[in-house]
Simulated scan of single mutants.
Amino acid sequence: MRKQVLSVALIAISAALVSWGYKGHRAVATIAQKHLTANTAYAVSAYLKGESMADVSTWADEHRNPTTGKWHFLNLPLGLNHQQFVDFVNQQSNDNVYGAILKEEAIIKDKASTPDQINSALKYLIHLVGDAHQPMHISRAEDKGGNTIQVRFDNAGTNLHSLWDSKLIDHEGLSEEQIAKQYDWANEAQIKKWQDSSPMEWLWESYQISSELYADVKPGQQIDEAYYKKYIQTIHLRIDQAGIRLAGELNRLLKDVKGGVAPVSSLKNAASSGNKKIDVTQDSVAPLIELKDVKDFLQKDVAVSGKVYSVKDIGSMVLVNFGAAYPNQLLTVVLKGDAKQLASQITDKTITVMGKVIDFKGKPEIVVTDKKSISIEK
């Protein structure tokens, strides 16, 4: 009985500390995934052993311990100006969301880190960047980030922290797919501006918002539709910024990764595996190679990027010429099955293809039947 009570208590504590909720964290990860370069996307997929960024986005909440539990938030007093805020954060220990983000980024960038270390660091970073953008995670210690400020919303009791984790998002009534699509609205100028900012500035933004939220609520308050309409756009902004900035950090950290970055087997089997986790061993991770070298990789799984010069639909398949127009192409990619759907999207685009290189009449060729094996550069 005592064990049962303890388990229930631990579950309750864990639930109270969750940030952005399930939908919010998956939206951050899904938006980030869309803004990765091809090379980074394959590096991330390889290090995550075939799991998607969305699938691991809540892993850090599910694997908390007394040390890592402190990594999800930052406690500060109200009323700090920007310089006071920066000084306060820099004077703290590293056991907070700011220190944890810097720590995990250092592990990812360190060439001496093992694949398992990078796997763990990626899972934390994907989650913690989301945490940094949830305003109530950069807030006061005395009310546990709003967890002890009780309010009512949608005819039920809740608290200020949970309201911002998930209740406002749930009230919107969108599916995960709709959230990821509708929240991802930034233009190129905004993306550049957001990605040029530092983790310290992300936290400062959250601190400014949480300061406003504290001033805009009273314990026991009935949260009405006007409050929802006022702040749901702030949630859209923070989740989009988190996704865009996460992508920017990963693109920067993994831009120099060469070779051993594309888990070809995992992507080929993704459709038949559904939502199951796919284990990718070191042997099944294919190198990202130069297009000019593709002829040297016959009968090997590779990832290769190049410009599409021409596309020809011959009915049962679509022929895609890489590197030059036919008959001088460096590689022919043959699209079959659902991969044929991409034919109209890739002309004159740079794409990355994963698959086994074969010889067809003296020319290297890759046959693709799964559209997930192709990434189109923006």
Rank of each mutant, 00 (worst) to 15 (best):
M53K: 00
T68P: 08
K378P: 15
Y22A: 08
M317F: 10
D170Q: 15
V318N: 03
D131F: 12
T281D: 10
H127N: 15
A100G: 01
D256Y: 12
K300C: 05
L267Y: 05
I374W: 00
T37N: 09
K349Q: 15
R140K: 14
K268E: 11
P263S: 03
D87C: 09
E365V: 07
S375Y: 13
H35M: 02
K230D: 03
I169L: 15
A15T: 09
T68C: 06
S266K: 02
N328W: 07
K349M: 12
L122I: 09
A156E: 13
M136G: 02
N119S: 09
P364C: 06
Y98M: 13
G260W: 04
T114W: 06
S113I: 10
L203D: 03
L76M: 12
M136C: 02
A247S: 14
W204L: 01
A226I: 08
R140S: 10
A32W: 00
K268N: 10
G157Y: 07
T68R: 11
S162M: 12
I351V: 15
Q329H: 14
P263M: 00
Q190E: 15
S206L: 01
N328R: 09
Y98T: 07
A324P: 05
E62F: 10
D87W: 12
P219Q: 02
E105L: 10
D359Q: 14
V285K: 01
Q299K: 14
Q134W: 05
D293I: 04
Q190K: 13
R2A: 15
D301T: 02
K292I: 11
K349N: 13
N65C: 10
H82R: 15
P219H: 02
N65M: 07
Q182G: 07
Q190L: 13
G243W: 00
K295M: 07
A325D: 11
I11W: 04
A325C: 03
E142P: 04
P199T: 08
G146H: 02
A141K: 13
G315L: 06
D216G: 05
R2T: 14
R26T: 12
T114Y: 05
W204C: 01
I179G: 01
T30D: 12
A215M: 09
